[in-house]
Design a binder for these strands. Structure first.
Lengths: 113, 113
DNA sequence: TAAATATACTATGCGTCATACACTATTGTC
DNA sequence: GACAATAGTGTATGACGCATAGTATATTTA
C-alpha cells in the first residue's frame, strides 16, 4: 500500500468514525447480537471489526441508550442488545442532526463554498 | 445542561468528527485563510473553533494535501491555505466515499436494517 | 478429523478533537 | 483619545475514541 492510499484509508476511517454510532443505533431498533450487527453493517457496506463493535456496545449501554441480555435457549448463547426509550429518543435527534449535516456538506462539496 | 443533552452534544461532536476534514477540504479548493474558513463553515451551519481548525490545517499540510503561504500585502498579514493536486485527488475520492456512506446510513435510518 | 464459521470479549496504543490559553492589529464608537 | 469589538494567528494538553492484536470456545461442514 502506497502513501496515498494509506492516507486515504486513514481519512475514510475518520469519516466512518462517529457515523458508526448512528449506524449501530439505527440497527438496534430491532434486537441484535454482536455478530449479527457486524454482518448487518457489512451487508450495508459499512465494515467494522468485532473488536471495535463490542467496546462501542459497552459504552452505549453504560450511557444508558441500550439494554442487553443473554439468550441461552438457542443452540448457542447469544447476548442480545436493543435500544431502550432513551436510545430511541437520541436516535431520532441524532438522525435529524445527521441529515442537517449531510445536506450542509453536500452543498460544500458541490459548490465549494 | 442535563445528562441527556450533554450526551447528545457529545454524540453530535463525534458525528462532526471526520466530516470536518471533508468540509475543510471542500472549501479549500479556493484559497482561504483560517478566519475565513471558520466563517465559511459557520455560514453553512458547521461550527468549529479556531483552536480546532489550526491544528487540523497543520496536519493536512503535513500530510501533503495542501499548501500555505503568507500574504503580507494586505492591511494585515494572513496565511492562505489551498489544496494542491494531491489534495484535490483525495477530496474527489473522499467525496465519493462520503456519498456511498451517507446513502448506506440513510437506508439504515429509514428501514432499520 | 480438520477446517471453517459463528460467537463473545479485553487491553492498549495511537490519533484526533475540544478546551483553554496567549498574542496582536484594525475598525468602530462614544 | 479611549475603549470595545472584531479580525486574525497560533500552541499545549487532556479526554476520549477507534483500530489492532490477541484470547477463547462452540458448532457446522467437508
Amino acid at each position: 500500500m502506497d502513501h496515498d492510499s494509506a492516507l486515504f484509508e486513514n481519512l475514510v476511517s475518520e469519516l466512518r468514525r462517529g457515523t458508526l454510532i448512528l449506524s449501530v443505533l439505527a440497527l438496534l431498533r430491532e434486537p441484535q447480537y454482536g455478530y449479527s450487527l457486524v454482518s448487518g453493517l457489512e451487508s450495508h457496506g459499512i465494515s467494522i471489526e468485532a473488536g471495535t463493535l463490542y467496546p462501542l456496545l459497552r459504552r452505549l449501554e453504560k450511557q444508558g441508550l441500550l439494554d442487553s441480555e443473554w439468550d441461552v435457549d438457542q443452540s448457542r448463547p447469544r447476548r442480545y442488545y436493543v435500544l431502550n426509550d432513551s436510545g430511541k429518543k437520541i436516535l431520532a435527534l441524532l438522525s435529524a442532526e445527521w441529515r442537517r449535516m449531510t445536506q450542509a456538506i453536500e452543498v460544500m462539496i458541490q459548490t465549494g463554498g
